[in-house]
Design a binder for these strands. Structure first.
Lengths: 240, 240
DNA sequence: TGATTATGACTGACTAGTCAGTCATAGTTC
DNA sequence: GAACTATGACTGACTAGTCAGTCATAATCA
C-alpha cells in the first residue's frame, strides 16, 4: 500500500497547527511570505494579489511535477490560500492549467515580435534576437514552460494549438522573412534555408531541452553553440 | 462529487483521469493473442509472451498519458491480463516505467552505434545515418519515447541519467568523431563544429518534437530539412 | 498431486471539487 | 465619525470518488 510517491513533497512551509487556524484568524494566521500587511490594499487589489500568488505557485508546481501529478492542495499551500480560493479564480484544475500556460506564453510572443527591423546586418539581427532568447528563455524558468508544453502538449491539444498559432507560426514567419532578407542581401547563400526556418531555431530549442535534462551531466554553452551555427549559415568570421 | 463533466468533452485524450478513462484502453481489450493456444508453448515461453504484451501495452499507455495519468488497470486490460499479473513481472508502477524506458532505449543505441566506418564521404556517412534515424525514430513510435523522456526526465533522474549515458553521450561522441574526420579530410571547414556535435543532431531532434506536436498543423519534410542543414555544413551540392 | 502461475475482488491512502459558514471591509445612516 | 448593515472573499472540513498494490482463491502445468 505504500505509495511510490514520485513527488517528494518538500514544502518548507511547515503545516500550521490545525487548531489555531480559526482562533487567531484575525491577523496572525497566514505566515506565508506572500502577504505583506504593511501596505493597505482594498478588496479588489488583494484579490488580484492572491490570484497572482496562485498563478505563481501553480506554475512552480506544474513545472516541477507535470499536470497529473500536481496536487491542488500543494498549490494552495504554496500560495498561502485555502484550496477553495483557487476555485474562486479558476473553473477547475484543467482550465487553470490551460489558462496558466496561455498566460505564460504571451511574454514569449512579446519577445519574439519585439525587435524592430533596426539597422545592421541580418546576421546581427538574428544573433541579437537569438542571444536574447537564450538569455531570457533557455536559461530561465520560461524554458521550463517550453518543456512543459512539449511534455503535456499531446494531452492538451488546445494548448498545442495555441502555442503553434501564437508562438511557432509567428516566430517561424518572422524568421523566414529575415532569412529571405539575408538571401536578398547576399548574406545567405543557401536559398533552401527559407523553406526551413526551423533550422535557424533548432540550436536554441536544443539548448532549452539540454538545460532542463542534461545540464548537470554536461553544461552547454548555448550562446557559443548558436554562434557556431550562425557561422555555418553566414560564413565564418566572428567578431566576438 | 466528481461531476461527470457534462459540458464540453473537447479533449479526445483528456489528461483528466476520470473523463478519458473509459475511452482509452476499453476498446482494445481482448485482441491479445495470449488466450489463443494455437501454438503449444511451455510456461517460460508463455510468461515471456505475456511479459511482452504487458510491455507493449504499458508503452502505449505511457506514451498517450504520461506516467502519472496512466492507470495500471488500463495497461492490464490492454495487455489482456489481470492486474495482479503485472506484479509478477514488475515491482511497482515506477520501476515498470523505468525498466520500460530502458528497454526501449536499447534499440536506439543499437541504431546509433551500428554503422561501421564504411567507405564514402563523411557527408554520406552522416546523411545515411541521419536519414535512417529520421525514418526509424522521428517518424515512428520510438519518437514518442524520446518525447516521453523529455517530458518525464526531470521527474525520473535515473531515466535522464541512463539516457544521457547510453544514448546522448555515446551518440555525441560518435558524431564528434565523424566531424573531426570530416575536418581532417577537408570536407568540413568550420573547426568549431567539433565542439558542438549537438548542432549536427539538432534538426533531427526538432523533427521528432515537431512530429508529435505540430504535424497536424503543418507537416514537416524532415529529410529535406536535414539535407538542407547538411548543405550548410558541407557546402551546397546535393545529388538528390 | 503438488507446485507454479494467474486472477480480480478488495483495501486504504489519496485527491478534485463543494459549500455552509466566517469575518474583514465597504457602504449607509444619523 | 461612530454605529450598524451588507457584501463577498475566503476558509477548510467534507463528499464522492480513484487507483496502486495485495492476497485468498482458482486455474494450469509438469
Amino acid at each position: 500500500m505504500k505509495k511510490p510517491d514520485t513527488r517528494t513533497s518538500r514544502h518548507p512551509v511547515s503545516a500550521q497547527p490545525r487548531a489555531a487556524s480559526r482562533a487567531s484568524a484575525a491577523k496572525q494566521t497566514k505566515v506565508v511570505s506572500a502577504k505583506l500587511p504593511l501596505i493597505k490594499l482594498n478588496r479588489t487589489e488583494r484579490a488580484a494579489e492572491r490570484r497572482q500568488a496562485i498563478i505563481d505557485a501553480a506554475m512552480e508546481e506544474f513545472i516541477a511535477r507535470g499536470f497529473a501529478a500536481t496536487r491542488l492542495d500543494d498549490i494552495a499551500k504554496r500560495a498561502g490560500v485555502a484550496k477553495g480560493t483557487i476555485y474562486l479564480h479558476f473553473k477547475d484544475k484543467e482550465s487553470m492549467f490551460e489558462e496558466l500556460i496561455r498566460t505564460a506564453i504571451v511574454p514569449l510572443v512579446g519577445r519574439m515580435q519585439g525587435p524592430p527591423p533596426a539597422s545592421g546586418t541580418v546576421r546581427e539581427l538574428i544573433e541579437g534576437f537569438a542571444l536574447n532568447f537564450i538569455r531570457e528563455v533557455a536559461t530561465t524558468r520560461r524554458g521550463d514552460i517550453v518543456r512543459l508544453i512539449v511534455a503535456e502538449g499531446p494531452r492538451f491539444p488546445s494548448i498545442a494549438d495555441f502555442y503553434y498559432r501564437e508562438v511557432v507560426s509567428k516566430g517561424l514567419a518572422g524568421m523566414r522573412a529575415l532569412i529571405e532578407l539575408g538571401i536578398a542581401r547576399g548574406e545567405i547563400t543557401n536559398k533552401n534555408l527559407a523553406r526551413f526556418p526551423q533550422i535557424m531555431v533548432a540550436p536554441a530549442m536544443i539548448a532549452v531541452i539540454w538545460q532542463s535534462l542534461f545540464e548537470k551531466h554536461a553544461p552547454l554553452d548555448a550562446i557559443e553553440m548558436f554562434r557556431t551555427h550562425l557561422d555555418l549559415i553566414f560564413g565564418e568570421r566572428r567578431t566576438t
